[in-house]
């Protein structure tokens, strides 16, 4: 087991290297110029010499392979470089926004699970009834609703009925839990609803499968109460695929954050990414993409391990 874990972990390194190369190549063909956007886009008087001097300062005049080598050498020393726009270290740019995005992601996941488990379970147990139908419709509709639109509607709702908007600046949870939750609950709802759709469907079908298994039938025939059967036998076994789906949908969640942070003006990773793209901040886009890819790979690595723990039938040689 330990050997397997170490081996899988080490395999992440070459993968990330290829990811890095791919990202670098992709990013450098993005047209546009960070210097132009920073100095010229306001319409102010600027001379040619200044624009060129800035390009040189950022190393944009160096050959492309040279720029790549710089980035790689930095990465080896765990230095992600500095943002071409702000000049701040990229690790810092990410770090200050991570708390918000992470908290939003966790809250969305919790909301999704809190919605999905009961809904999926009841739909499976009442399969074919109107309850099942409503739940299924609720989840299919969730998949079809753009989370940014849901966000806009939530804002409209809050403005119209409460003349109120979530606070504009982020308060960390440990500083003022109430202010923090009041700010993040709405975007978390917008993302969480959509996210719950997949999980609800997964829970339902996983549970349906388990309910057909012999040991559950045995439990039925022993005359155990429905609640006991569901809780003791079925649900526990159905957790496995649900956990998987939560892991796989991590990427999906990030996508939801990108648009939702925009709607709610949240200072998170998703907004940072969109800003970086529109500013052509090459180094920051690179750093962020690498970070997201690494995050995805790590989450899936952990999910694999969880899988192994939850399901003793899977063995690793």
């Amino acid at each position: 087991m330990t050997r397997y874990v170490v081996k899988r972990f080490l395999l992440l390194i070459p993968t990330l290297l290829v990811v890095a190369i791919l990202i670098f190549v992709l990013i450098r063909i993005v047209p546009g110029d960070v210097v132009e956007l920073r100095l010229v886009s306001g319409g102010m008087f600027v001379t040619k010499g200044v624009v060129e001097a800035e390009r040189a300062r950022l190393g944009l005049d160096k050959p492309i392979w040279n720029q790549f080598a710089d980035w790689m050498l930095g990465l080896v020393r765990l230095d992600f470089g500095t943002s071409m726009w702000t000049g701040a270290p990229i690790s810092h740019e990410i770090a200050i926004r991570l708390e918000l995005s992470l908290q939003l992601a966790i809250m969305s996941t919790l909301i999704a699970v809190a919605l999905a488990l009961p809904l999926g379970t009841i739909a499976a147990l009442r399969r074919g009834t109107w309850i099942d139908f409503v739940v299924q419709f609720f989840s299919v509709a969730g998949l079809a609703t753009p989370s940014f639109w849901l966000g806009i509607l939530l804002i409209l709702f809050l403005l119209t009925y409460f003349h109120w908007l979530p606070p504009l600046t982020f308060t960390p949870l440990w500083q003022d839990p109430k202010a923090n939750l009041v700010q993040l609950i709405w975007p978390a709802l917008a993302v969480g609803y959509r996210y719950s759709a997949v999980t609800t469907r997964m829970t339902r079908s996983a549970l349906l499968e388990v309910l057909r298994e012999d040991y559950v039938r045995t439990a039925w025939s022993k005359g155990l109460a429905e609640r006991t059967i569901v809780r003791r036998h079925a649900l526990r076994n159905a957790m496995l695929p649900v956990v998987t789906v939560i892991g796989l949908e991590f990427a999906f969640l990030i996508g939801g954050l990108v648009v939702t942070e925009q709607v709610f003006n949240l200072n998170g990773i998703g907004k940072l990414f969109v800003d970086a793209i529109s500013r052509r901040d090459y180094t920051l886009i690179q750093g962020l993409m690498l970070f997201v890819a690494a995050g995805y790979l790590l989450v899936n690595f952990v999910i694999d391990l969880l899988y192994a723990r939850l399901d003793p039938r899977i063995s690793y040689g």
């Binding site: 047209p31 132009e36 956007l37 886009s41 529109s278």
Partner: peptide, 8 residues
């Protein structure tokens, strides 16, 4: 166009 490509 978006500012980047617009200036380009």
């Amino acid at each position: 166009k978006e500012s980047g490509p617009y200036f380009a």
